[in-house]
Amino acid sequence: MARSQKNITGDETIHYVSARKQREDKKKHASTAIQPPLTPMIDIVFQLLLFFLLACQFRMDEGQIAANLPDLSGKPPPKTIPVDPIDITLQATGRDGLDVLIQVKRTDGVAAELTTAEELYAFLTQIKSSHGEQADDVPVTIEPIGNVRWGHVANVFNQAVRADYKKVGFKPSG
């Protein structure tokens, strides 16, 4: 047990101060701890967090494929077509027209009938390699017919771009 010790001077009376009293005195005179009020801040933070959790909708990772539009300005088309163009026709097949038949035509008649994008890519790559230096000038025209789904059209367009053709576009309508 700790004992209180005090130096007595002059005519001061000796008082016994218990250890408990000493602790209470010490507590009373101790400096007050200052703490900023955290509760309102936590309230606001929770409100914000709830808002973001409820309002947040993650967006899919979308991108863009560049395409050319046919020129309707009335300028005369070039007199000579330098290389044999590739015409790709898409037709809806299957139940509710959900599938697609891809026909690749060249000036010498129907070149191929395909059903998948991978087949089309392989075919386009093969044609491109046969053109040598002129390969970049080969125009690829896509002609979707009627009720073909846009997903198929975009997929075929993507395969032409993937095969590194530079002049890919849609056939002008009308």
């Binding site: 991108g63 020129d71 898409l90 846009w150």
Partner: peptide, 30 residues
């Protein structure tokens, strides 16, 4: 939308041509 039929997309392409636009972007998943 990928399920839309092309005959409902074609009028938009025609409108773009009439607006004398030379280029366009097709939105697709990356």
């Amino acid at each position: 939308d990928k399920s839309i039929r092309y005959d409902h997309i074609e009028p938009v392409l025609q409108a773009m041509q009439q607006a004398e636009l030379g280029r366009m972007y097709i939105t697709a998943m990356r």
